[in-house]
């Protein structure tokens, strides 16, 4: 498999009044051709900032790259001039945002919004782009695309808008599609349709997908590999099977434990108590230490290094150190069959 994207030790900060918020603190991962990598984590874990950094969509200032590189086809995207970035965006990397209600321009027809990228990157005429737009709308499952293409976003339902967003993002056959919580704002039945659509299109076009989500059900359905982010760092990464069946990090346990289960009767939904760290003043050690039931003194002092569990799984936790006490994975985090296939 070929790596098409390598993120190495990426750190992104935001200058705010009085403090520098370190949103992403040394994140490394690769993306291989045609695979789906899920980045999971709760709000504020840095997953969206990571994704938008790849596209260079972070406003700079206040945002800035502190460290690291993003290698796409061997070129570092963090150092590319803005003009050259324009030829990457839309053409090589497409992006879908969380809320389809706000991610389309309300005063422009869907057709024009699809055509823009085609005209810019594929040198199409307006007419060609219009016809290609109809084709794309048909591809993403919009009925009567000849009519719909001339409509405005407010004439579309939420699900249809997200379909139109997918059509925009995939218009120029990008090598990578970044989907930043693509189904969070949609209701559950539509979610499944959109995910099916994305999977189908991936098979057809061979696009690699970076899927950002906090919904582990979606991860199980879509991804081949998973990176778990917490406090601006990747705390654990591995294949879907490894993350679901052999998780090693207490935060991953917590996430798995918070999934509602159908086969066990629960009085209340499980949560991870506490809240994520303040990234304006990030902890010196492991960011999860304040919420971790297994925290030790070492955890507060230094961030643990990655331990290679297998060729594909890496975990950053002091519990994996030889000197640490043996800890059993809590029962709540043991995944049965039911929720994976949900």
């Amino acid at each position: 498999m070929n790596k098409i994207l390598e993120v190495k030790d990426l750190s992104v900060s935001f200058d705010t009044y009085g403090a520098e918020v370190k949103a992403v603190r040394g994140v490394s991962f690769d993306l291989e051709e045609k695979e789906t990598l899920a980045i999971v984590g709760e709000s504020g874990s840095g997953k969206s900032v990571t994704a938008q950094s790849i596209m260079r969509l972070i406003q700079m200032p206040p945002g800035k790259f502190v460290n690291g590189s993003i290698l796409f086809n061997g070129e570092d995207l963090t150092e590319k001039p803005e003009k050259q970035m324009e030829n990457i965006r839309g053409k090589e990397i497409g992006m879908i945002f969380q809320d389809p209600m706000t991610s389309l321009n309300p005063t422009m027809t869907i057709g024009k919004q699809i055509a823009e990228g085609l005209i810019k990157h594929r040198n199409m005429s307006k007419k060609e782009a219009h016809l290609k737009g109809i084709e794309l709308l048909k591809l993403v499952g919009i009925p009567t695309p000849e009519v719909r293409i001339n409509q405005y976003p407010h004439e579309y339902s939420g699900g249809m808008r997200q379909r139109a967003m997918i059509a925009i993002a995939l218009a120029c056959n990008p090598k990578i599609l970044i989907a930043d919580e693509p189904t969070t704002a949609l209701d559950v039945t539509i979610q499944a349709q959109i995910l099916d659509l994305m999977r189908g299109l991936q098979e057809e076009t061979g696009t690699a997908i970076i899927l950002i989500t906090h919904d582990l059900g979606i991860v199980a359905n879509m991804a081949s590999r998973v990176a778990v982010m917490y406090g601006g760092k990747i705390v654990e990464t591995g294949t879907v099977d490894e993350i679901f069946y052999h998780p090693k990090h207490p935060y991953t346990w917590g996430l798995l434990g918070s999934m509602p289960k159908l086969d066990i009767e629960e009085e209340e939904l499980q949560v991870i108590p506490g809240s994520p760290p303040d990234l304006a003043d990030p902890p010196k050690g492991c960011p999860f230490v304040t919420r971790c039931p297994y925290a030790m003194s070492a955890c507060t002092k230094q961030m643990p290094a990655y331990t290679n569990i297998s060729d594909t799984q890496k975990t950053a936790c002091w519990l994996l150190d030889d000197r640490a006490p043996e800890v059993q994975i809590p029962e709540s985090a043991i995944v049965g069959g039911s929720e994976i296939n949900a």
């Binding site: 596209m55 003009k83 992006m95 945002f97 809320d99 706000t102 823009e116 990228g117 925009i168």
Partner: peptide, 20 residues
Amino acid sequence: DYIKTAKSKGLGQRVVTYRH
């Protein structure tokens, strides 16, 4: 968000500002 969408299509700063 739709300005971000416009940028993510690879449109230049001027087109994003004036058209969108």
